[in-house]
């Protein structure tokens, strides 16, 4: 069988398939469907310092080949996570990446410093798309200066590799990616959801309690692929691509444009075993074509005519 290992430099993965934050719970929910050690790793649901409730319903609406969510990042907070969830995950030999959230820069750093004290976390993924209430909902991901500043401090406070997760809701994704690299990021993951809305023509009301939400699923794959390609051209640090991945072929397309690993998100809702199925489909693709190492596909897109 083909060698599926993925080398992120700062982290070696069994295979290039991770699960995306917010679509895989804290991992334990999927134990009846798959073995957590059969996938590259899991990125757990976004963690703020304290527990959070999330937005009023309706929180989700389906759209053409996608969904818009306005869940609002409810979660258990770092103390509960470290005490109850992390020890369980360690038993299952899962590679765990924690998605770090914050309302304002300081909260991100508090989450990191708290979790620094615990073992069993392979890296942090800085979710710089969290709305900052004091800044009218603006997030650090929207601006290169804010991105560089928060990444630099987070990196300093962290005793672990730091992946920075980018928002697609920006004019120039390559510029933000370079700012994250300049700030000291060890890797970049993208894309988070696309800002979106849905309305009900009959009731003339928004379909989401929060009015706006984030679009994900197959509908966003072409946008995600384009952005992954642009970022791969702009930075030297490893990239983890995502957005609408449902099959092994989808995953390989992200690798072709430069991602060393991928994350599977919304597909987990439709097929709870999607991530492990995708690992198998990648292996089958490579074996059928005599590709010895899947890593050899990374960044091999041919753009000359």
């Amino acid at each position: 069988m083909a060698d599926l290992r993925a080398d992120l430099g700062f982290l070696q993965l069994r295979n290039p398939v991770l699960t995306a934050s917010g679509t895989f719970g804290y991992g334990m929910e999927f134990l009846s469907f798959l073995d957590l050690s059969a996938i590259g790793g899991i990125v757990v649901k976004g963690l703020y310092y304290g527990p959070r409730e999330g937005n009023p319903p309706p929180r989700l609406v389906e759209t053409a080949s996608g969904l818009i969510n306005a869940i609002g990042l409810p979660g258990v907070g770092v103390e509960h996570f470290a005490a109850d969830v992390l020890p369980e995950l360690r038993k299952h030999d899962a590679t765990v990446i924690v998605n770090v959230c914050g309302d304002g820069d300081e909260e991100y750093f508090q989450v990191i410093e708290f979790l620094n004290r615990y073992d069993g976390i392979a890296a942090y993924e800085l979710n710089i798309s969290c709305p900052n209430v004091k800044l009218n909902g603006a997030c650090p991901a929207m601006n290169p200066h804010m991105t560089r500043t928060i990444v630099a401090t987070a990196k300093q406070r962290s005793r672990r590799p730091l992946v920075v997760k980018l928002s697609p809701n920006v004019t120039n994704i390559a510029e933000i990616a370079r700012a994250a690299e300049d700030g000291g990021a060890d890797g970049i993951s993208l894309i988070n959801t696309l800002l979106a809305m849905a309305v009900d023509l009959e009731t003339r009301r928004p379909k989401l309690g929060n009015v706006f939400g984030g679009l994900s699923g197959p509908a966003i794959k072409p946008v995600a692929l384009r952005m992954t390609y642009q970022v791969a051209q702009a930075v030297r640090i490893p990239i983890i691509g995502m957005g609408g991945i449902c099959t092994g072929r989808d995953a390989l397309e992200f690798m072709l444009v430069g991602a060393r690993a991928v994350q599977v998100g919304t597909a987990n809702f439709v097929d709870p075993a999607a991530s492990v199925r995708i690992v198998h489909e990648i292996a089958e693709y490579c074996d059928a074509r005599g590709i010895a190492r899947v890593a050899d596909i990374v960044g091999t897109l041919e753009t000359n005519r």
């Binding site: 895989f24 869940i71 709870p272």
Partner: peptide, 8 residues
């Protein structure tokens, strides 16, 4: 099955 938190 409890992972998306949409159905509250």
């Amino acid at each position: 099955f409890g992972v998306c938190w949409s159905c509250v």
